[in-house]
Design a protein around this nucleic acid. Sequence first.
RNA 1: GCGCCUGUAGCUCAGCUGGAUAGAGCAACGGACUUCUAAUCCGUAGGUCGCACGUUCGAGUCGUGCCAGGCGCGCCA
Length: 560
Amino acid sequence: MDIYNMYFYLKQEINNSILEAVKLAFEKKELKENIIPSIEIEEPKIALHGDFSTNIAMVMAKTQKMPPKKISEIIIKNICDKEKKFTKIEVAGAGFINFFINLSFWYPTLKKIHDYDIKFGSSNLGKGKKVLVEFVSANPTGPIHIGHGRGAAVGDTIARILSFSGYNVQKEYYINDSGKQINTLGYSTLLRYRELFGHSIDFPQDCYPADYIKDIALEIKNEKGDSLLYGDEKENIKYCASFSAKKILDAIRNDLNLFGIEYDNWYSEQSLYDTNKVQTTISYFRDKNIIYEKEGALWFKTSQFGDEKDRVVVRQNNEPTYFASDIAYHKDKFDRKFDKIINVWGADHHGYVDRLAASIEAAGHNKEDFRVVLINMVNLLRGGIPVAMGKRTGEFVTLRDVMDEVGTDAARFIFLTRHYESPLDFDLEIATKKNNDNPVFYVQYVHARISSILKKASEANIVWDENRVALLNTEEDVKIIKLLARFPEVVRIAAECMEPHRITFYLMELASSFHNYYNKHKVLSEDLTLSNTRLYLMITIKKVIRNGLSLLGVSAPEKM
RNA sequence: GCGCCUGUAGCUCAGCUGGAUAGAGCAACGGACUUCUAAUCCGUAGGUCGCACGUUCGAGUCGUGCCAGGCGCGCCA
């Protein structure tokens, strides 16, 4: 499956060894029944318990009517280890079998890291399946704020991880450029525009009050003079709406670019109407009796597909709801031949998931191929004190503000330090700190420190050597090599679960091991052979740190 | 009222499909720079995994019921 994943490989190998041992024991009548439960190969938390362990004996105890420890002993006796993979296999605790892997199976990882370089950790797990990741998709009615930033970081990183894992990934932004709010945007702008001509205006509560609307109004004034004071108001609102939306969307695109995000598609909601896809979709479901008429409105039978009740798609006044275009949009995603659809949403939209999933199932698609990742809220703090935010007043902290203050690396990294379902405290003060409080510096510092060693080595004409890896035999060496070997497995699990924070935590652990190593062992020393070999190790650490940071969209600096 | 999420050390959080003695960082205390970057490291201390039952060889993890906090329950988007 994977290009190179020693952990995954060894788990499979151990699994096979055990199955064969059980079979053998059964043939020798040492075990009663040839019933093999689904066994698990685990990685013990404590190094004392070996590299891998299995619980098979505990699971088999009942059917075998034998104490687990005895079963373990029988299995161990029958394990055949031609390749000398194991230095020790032992029974421990309640009946666990612990496997200790020969170091000679870990060392080749270093060469693989060198050879695969920027590809190390990648795999063909996804087998080229087409995946669409839609994220942010904020309404073009104002700049994106810090909450969108978290969704952006998570969505983009999921896309990167899946792409690295052999999926064919496209990133998409859905533009809500249709409907009531966009009209409200236009009206808000027109009011501000009139204000510029000294008209006294009565600014309604549901309009957007923020200053950027005034700026846009001024731009319109500069371009169109006073012409929008006259003529058909509806037309004028429409003009203002599309002008404003375009301006705001440009700003959003710009902010996201600064944040390290490039989309493959920007998909317009209005285009679904312009190309009749909404109408076609409605007729499609009407023909199938999934959309029906009641009380003058059109309803979708979402309740038949797991939603709590049916939902309106076309109102009594003939206006389609937001849901109508969303059904068409998601049908279109599958029509575009995507195998997997991933939506990254704010957790406040979770109530909407069931009905959309229902529409997807109704269209004949597998619910499993549709996944909504719900991102929890961000609490913005400064020195532990909440920063006041309120959409009503228009005073919310934008992503741009945060990037300007803490930088994109820190922002992206911090957004990825929590499971996305957990609320996140984002402290601006900590994000700019340059110590252990701030994990991004802690990890980047590894890259900088190693770069510095390499520079020094190069100046002293010390080169790396890959032929004496057995010299890397201290406790710290072994720990770090195993950790490096784990990287592909971490990526695999992160891809399977779509959980970017696993990469983040892995990097912090690797960084910690490195800093520990650095303080304990001198890389460049009197012992030239050892220096050459340790240099080799340093290069591999540097590459893995870089690959990991790159998955997060965070830079790996040569010096800090 | 119903649904979803969260609850783990003083604080902020990890803990993949149930596994052995529940882990980090910060804060506290005590140490380490004539040394490849001290933006670092080492050590000490710190726990009723919200509560209670249940499932089983075994539960932070699964189930049920409570408690607390957040969010959502429109012919809004």
